[in-house]
Nucleic acid binder design. Structure first.
Lengths: 352, 352
DNA sequence: GTACAGTGTCGAAGCGCTTCGACTGTCCCA
DNA sequence: TGGGACAGTCGAAGCGCTTCGACACTGTAC
């Protein structure tokens, strides 16, 4: 039962070869493989031996053609390098793993190609389902799929989800949790340091939801709050910190939604005498490993990439099985690590 | 000539539908699409109109089956989150873009599944070529493909490349360039701060080549040199910097091959009075944007991800066209930004 | 006027698989 | 003791495409 090593270029063995080898009909081999009909133990054994002996693997194209199912999930991912790269990667990893666990493969589609690409995939039957990451408030790309019945799962929530399944962290709730944490500690003036301006300009769904949640949470808690987009790069961050400290000196707590800027931000604050958490509190939205790797471990709501990815695949599979899924927002969890504390009201009390 | 919007679930139009619509034979439609035979302008126009009217897109599975070519490149990528994530992403982006430009799609395969996965892809005819990122010195996964004639391109160079095509930055030369830069400036004691120990333990090809190049370059230039793996995390980096400064106080120049640790490293050095570049020179190996975003912009050899990715796809396409490619190592380019300077021999001259 | 090379088009034969209906036994229960 | 139910297997049709050889023309050259 040694598996023959096949040179590519030799004709690959087909189901007919296996059938001949095992002395059965091709359809029987197919049924052994799919389990869709009962097979006697003896026959099964002979077929499996034949498969092993020939090193047979079913041809994906033929299978797709005959069964009208590709066992492929198309994953639409943004491959900008400006944002969030590690988080994107975590999503991709989680989704790929989940797909493999269900015997699906992943076709990678780069976002920011036009809608024709998706049509090509869907109408060319290149995949059985579509998972779209990083959805923006408006996604013209997806319009042609609306109501088509083709299984689509969005990671993120567009303005009009329609009948698309959506999964995501509840960014609005996450922002509220961050704000509430600062409010409980006694902060009265806070600021949101968000992603680069480009992200807002694109209308990126999660960034907007986080911002809106921040503003709503602050309003409810009666806090003064402002929002700032944070450009990356050490000098930019320093300049923006200076501007913030100058223009809004009362701010004692920051909510940061910008992983890339965190190291620079912490350095800038310390060098300006605003040590964290004594003289500036920070609550961040970022992956756990990033929160922990900072010079001051950060209180943070983590982005549950693995959970979101898993759920996205589950929803896709559900749709393949005929269920329809709605919007799912995963609840945020704040991990306290010590970067937020009660404010020292130095500016107010006066201090030598 | 309005393209009809198709509901998925409606039977998708086939080449036969288009043929009927245009009043020609299916094979004629096929030849219009492939351009493999001459077609009169009139017929072509009618066929194209029919295609547009029906919104026809060829079925990928059927096409693959009939033509024995999938128009898919399988990309084997590591999705660990411990290393190099942005760089990996740049490779993936570059490869995906290049593939699309050649009308190929990308099937994403996660590394660290067993060899059966690759066999499934190759023998199941799921892809026409394979690009493998992050290759290690020994890749048992690839053994079954050796000599098979299936187009394989490696990003990185294993110990025994055999007939696999390989592309990569010339990491050994890159290390030498870094060492030479420090040597020219007058440094005599240098250290390499490399990636996490796990990367060396895995036998990751590029890390080993960089290290070997570093040691060889230092030997040639007559420098004292040591090698240290750098664990990520702020505290680990601080501890390791302390150890270095204690155990090898004469070191005045660092070669850093560890993007993730750079912010922490710079912070640690400054807080220990070893400002860069005055009291410690640094030359790094990292992407340009990362080098520029540091608190001190770094002299760095960048990883030409886009070039490597492009070349990888070109080599894959070349193999599909019957050419065989060998190893290609791209020359390193050092970008000077001011993080390396002549050493102040403070420890030697004594200074108040 | 016949031969001959194109040129443009068609029909049919697969590519390798799944799946449906049909067929042959067995077994069990009426 | 006959018949239905069921397990196990087979053969053939067909999924939608590509591609090969054949065929009908149209010119052009002798």
């Amino acid at each position: 039962m040694t598996e023959q090593s096949l040179a590519y270029g030799d004709r690959m063995p087909t189901i007919a070869d296996v059938a001949r080898e095992a002395g059965v009909a091709p359809s029987t081999v197919s049924y052994v493989l799919s389990g869709k009909r009962a097979i006697s133990p003896g026959t099964r054994a002979r077929v499996e031996a034949g498969i092993a002996r020939l090193g047979y693997r079913p041809n994906a194209g033929a299978r797709a053609l005959a069964s009208a199912s590709t066992k492929i999930v198309a994953l639409v991912a943004p491959l900008r390098t400006d944002i969030n790269v590690p988080v994107i990667m975590q999503f991709v990893a989680a989704i790929a793993l989940q797909c493999r666990a269900r015997d699906y493969d992943v076709l990678l589609v780069i976002k920011d190609e036009g809608p024709e690409v998706l049509d090509r995939i869907v109408q060319g039957s290149m995949a059985d389902a579509l998972i779209v990451m990083d959805v923006e408030a408006h996604e013209p790309r997806l319009e042609s799929l609306r109501g088509s019945g083709f299984p689509v799962v969005l990671i993120g929530v567009p303005e009009t989800p329609g009948d698309f399944s959506c999964v995501d962290l509840d960014f609005a709730a996450a922002a509220r949790v961050c704000v509430e944490r600062l409010a409980e500690l006694g902060h009265r003036d806070i600021a949101l340091l968000g992603p680069t301006p480009a992200v807002y300009e694109r209308g990126t769904s999660y960034a907007l939801r986080f911002r809106d949640g921040f503003e709503a949470g602050a309003a409810e808690a009666g806090l003064r709050a402002s929002v700032h987009a944070l450009s990356p790069g050490h000098h930019e961050v320093e300049a923006q910190v200076d501007a913030l400290l100058r223009d809004e000196p009362e701010v004692t707590g920051l909510v940061v939604h910008n992983e890339a800027a965190l190291p620079a931000l912490l350095t800038a604050l310390r060098s300006r005498g605003r040590d964290v958490p004594e003289r500036m509190s920070i609550v961040a939205l970022c992956p756990d490993d990033i929160a922990e790797a900072q010079s001051v471990p950060l209180d943070a709501v983590s982005i549950p990439a693995a959970d979101v990815g898993r759920r996205a695949v589950e929803l896709a599979m559900g749709q393949l099985a005929g269920q329809l899924g709605g919007q799912e927002l995963l609840p945020p969890h704040l991990q306290v690590r010590g970067s937020a504390a009660e404010p020292h009201r130095v500016e107010v009390t006066g201090r030598p």
